[in-house]
Amino acid sequence: MNEIAIHVQDIYKNFHKQSSFPWPRRNGGEVSRQVVAVDNVSFDVHKGEIFGVLGPNGSGKSTLVRLIATLLLPDGGSITVFDHDVVRDPMAVQRLINRVSVEASFFKKLSPMENLSYGARLYGLNNRQARIQIREILNRLGLEASSVGKPVEEMSRGMQQKVAIARALLTHPAVLLLDEPTTGLDPRSKREVQSLVCELRDQEGTTILLTTHDMVEADTLCDRIAIMDSGRVVALETPEKLRSLVPSQNGHAPTLEDVFLELTGKKLVSEEANS
């Protein structure tokens, strides 16, 4: 448990928010607004660890995930995945990772099988074996066999999310980036996904970085949790240590939610517009 899977060092990322068409610039008018999405963040994730990232909407979780996933280039700092630098050797990193985002992105007219077959081929998997595995994984995730051939657009959001998780599992990533994988799922689906996450780590030794808004999920699944606010990591501890950070209220032992609200409270109102 000592090998470092993800090494994040002083990572910094800002965005310019402007109109979709960069010219002509209106003279004197509002030019572009800078948003610091990730602000000097450093941490290590160990091999086989489930590492949670919590934070209000717009606190920079997805940006962080995208930086690790080679989908964004950092403005400062560095990230390595098993010693491969995400900027200098993106392909080596890409071979080791996969990602599930909050929005299940598919060719919506195509079926789960067609979408996942495409995904498997992209990673150079043998297609016949992949097809067998696709059925297995989807079955394991509770998708009826009859849905495997139907267009994704006809499926519920929860089902789509499961297909998205299957897409990632198919490539057996050493590092799995889960960006709010259970947001919008019903309680049973949530449980299924959560137990799968544990199983992955226990049986395959997968390193998992998980962002979530579900405090109970974070508390039960994660070995360590980073709480982000406005692009910064404001706390990084085991769930137990985090809970001990705030005093007990009205005789109740503090929950992770209490800690979350305490550490990010000031921002709750002003950031709710972002997602």
């Binding site: 996933a69 996969n98 995904g119």
Partner: peptide
């Protein structure tokens, strides 16, 4: 189309 469907990130993230 990949932009429209939102799959572009997955295609560009693949090791190819």
């Amino acid at each position: 189309l990949e932009r429209w469907e939102g799959t572009i990130e997955y295609t560009l993230m693949a090791p190819i």
